[in-house]
């Protein structure tokens, strides 16, 4: 689901350099984001450095130090991936106080903590165990779908899920979802649209209530990378 070339690399801070933190750092680096790992344990920081990440030791209980690494400033996304839930909650609360708009992603496998992290201000809480459990279940009972998704959308193959932002003046503006026919023209499948004014849920493309697109809507689209490139070229050309 990458969108290289379409947007600039984001500045990401990962707090917590454990197994999860380093795995996330690895994946994000592969996608071309600018990643920085911070932790309050020297050994962990050393390990992260040894694996080639930019790492730093800070005490995340100190707001000054958080500010110094760019929270409330240039950081685009913050990951709170410490090993214990209480520290994550504390970190999320501190960061939220400093940067009200910053997307904060955290992790927990316990239902109560997930709620608490949301209450503390986390934008997104990942439950790795639920997802792994579901993947296993899918593997057993919907093997074809599991295999297809694993190899295409979530795999190395260049089939991506991406979002297209509708702006005033672009040729999507004012059109209905079902009259786009991007499937044939661009080899892109439109899943639906998220109207930010109505909330975050996806309006499915075949929804009987027809949706007219306007400024701020986000189209959710699946397609090969080159199709996106072609589409964006067209989009920009029309805009100019």
């Amino acid at each position: 689901m990458s969108a290289e070339g379409l947007s600039q690399a984001k500045k990401i801070v990962i707090v917590g350099g454990g197994a999860v933190g380093l795995e996330v750092a690895r994946q994000l680096t592969e996608r071309g984001e600018r990643v920085r790992v911070v932790d309050d344990r020297e050994a962990v920081v050393e390990k992260a450095r040894a694996q080639g990440f930019s790492a730093e030791r800070i005490s995340f209980q100190n707001d000054e130090e958080l500010k110094r690494i760019g929270i409330g400033g240039e950081v685009d996304v913050l990951f709170a991936l410490l090993d214990d839930d209480a520290s994550n909650v504390f970190l999320v609360i501190s960061a939220r106080a400093m940067a009200p708009e910053l997307p904060i992603v955290s992790i927990s496998g316990v239902r109560d903590t997930i709620e608490r992290l949301h209450a503390a201000g986390a934008t997104k809480v990942i439950d790795p165990y639920r997802i792994s459990g579901y993947k296993i279940y899918e593997r057993m009972h919907r093997p074809l779908i599991a295999e297809t998704l694993e190899h295409t959308v979530f795999g190395k193959v260049n089939l991506d899920i991406a979002e297209i932002h509708v702006r005033e003046g672009c040729f999507l503006h004012g059109k209905y979802l079902d009259e786009l026919s991007l499937e044939e023209r661009y080899n892109l499948i439109v899943l639906g649209v998220v109207d930010r004014e109505l909330g975050d849920h996806l309006i499915f493309a075949t929804d009987p209530r027809r949706h007219r697109m306007d400024d701020g809507d986000v189209l959710v689209v699946i397609g090969p990378e080159e199709a996106f490139r072609k589409f964006h070229a067209q989009l920009n050309a029309v805009e100019q």
């Binding site: 689901m1 990458s2 795995e23 996330v24 994000l28 984001e33």
Partner: peptide, 11 residues
């Protein structure tokens, strides 16, 4: 988790 994080950051 890494995969999801990556996708989330992107879109």
């Amino acid at each position: 988790v890494g995969l999801i994080a990556g996708e989330y950051v992107g879109q």
